[in-house]
Write a protein that binds this DNA or RNA. Structure first.
Lengths: 223, 223
DNA sequence: TATATAATTTAGCCATGCCTAAATTAATTT
DNA sequence: AAATTAATTTAGGCATGGCTAAATTATATA
């Protein structure tokens, strides 16, 4: 069995790899809120376990074995988020923190029972894909909200799950995955977005919009 | 926040204290499957935290603060056992192992949500009392099955939760808490018990009977 | 009471995983 | 290309919580 710390490193490498491409010691350390020297140490250990590849100063890559474990942990996390949300009514801005601890601890049996209870779901409450039991992830293509233009309509696909305050903010506008909205105006000079959600006009700051991903984009006539 | 190890020590001290009275370093170490010297070390640490009292060679006692934490962990454990059993259908011989890991990790919020979901229960699936949120335990008095005599009828009150094979064995006779049975014969010389459960005759070994506690004892006529 | 035995504690080591500070290597600027 | 700056790694330390082996203290036996 891997330690919790090792699992967290693998998960983080997977997520950084997914976003940015190359994963440096420094990026990884920053993401995990540890010092670079600590990351170096763990990378060395994971390498001896053949869970990552690494050449000095070159960045880390997950091996197939490492990726399998990373996806297993991510699956646990997202199944737990959805389970806590649906079965216990934990608010969507609280499920991440709870899942972060539970993900390392649940058995395969419990994973399977939650999966069945939830009807073999494919998305967590923030719209992130839940890898299936074989580690297969199907992520619908989506676009960062900051790439939208005036007059476009779309549906929220996914939002960041790790910032509780952000989630409460989005929740106050009902900006959940599945919610449709229309861009009324993008303020110039990297300004905020004014959008229409179910007839309500709402202003979304640019920094917030970076954490929102959408799909089903359509051009609509201005009102 | 306490470490998981420290929580396990407090819980174990509470349980040993409950059964036997004096808790020695050796007993504690054996119960936790560590060496006595390891127990000494942790006892010292818990003492500096004022969670236990201890004088060299005299045995350990929980302070009020230590007892509060022990009961909190036991509450988590038993609520989890019942929750896993009722909400996820985990078999009763599997809930202990799972709860053993989860008990250290769930939040107060999750504890409260499970408690509400279950209707503020007072007993886990093995008949052990669930301390309430203030740490109050109400344990109905019960008698070890080995103290029963021929012709007595009773109801199963509680069984040990930590031996999975034993639980499967008991389950095969439907010997759950709440199940009534009548003692047909106690074999002499510390022999096994022959009992009647719902018309079925079953032989229960003495060692097994030591793990079963009963109440509502009545004398009945022999058939 | 003296001695043997059993329980407990101390001393010192190991692995994990974090840290700081210093050294090394790579990348960038002049 | 040389020098500066940035990234990474190494070296050595700390806390946790195990371990073994040796010393100590208590208990039981002769």
């Amino acid at each position: 069995m891997l330690t919790q710390a090792a699992e967290d490193y693998l998960k983080s490498i997977y997520k950084l790899q997914e976003k940015g491409g190359k994963v440096s010691t420094g990026n990884l350390a920053e993401y995990l809120d540890v010092k670079p020297s600590s990351a170096t140490g763990m990378i060395k250990k994971l390498k001896t376990m053949k869970l990552v590849s690494h050449e000095r100063y070159q960045g880390v890559t997950l091996t197939d074995a490492g990726k399998t474990i990373a996806l297993e942990i991510i699956r646990h996390h997202r199944l737990l988020e959805l389970y806590l949300f649906k079965a216990l009514g934990v608010p969507w801005d609280g499920v991440h923190e709870e899942a972060e601890k539970l993900e390392h601890v649940i058995s395969e049996d419990m994973e399977a029972r939650m999966d069945a209870f939830l009807g073999y779901p494919t998305e967590d409450p923030h719209g992130s894909p839940i890898p299936d039991k074989n580690g297969v992830v199907l992520k619908a293509p989506s676009v960062q909200m900051t790439d939208l233009n005036n007059g476009q309509s779309c549906v929220v696909a996914e939002v960041s799950d790790d910032d509780s305050a952000l989630l409460r903010h989005l929740g106050s506008f009902s900006l959940y995955p599945g919610t449709a909205f229309r861009v009324i105006e993008v303020a110039p000079f990297e300004g905020p977005f004014t959008i229409d959600i179910a007839g309500q006009q709402v202003v979304i700051g640019r920094e917030v919009a970076k954490h929102i991903f959408v799909n089903n984009i359509e051009e609509t006539d201005n009102v």
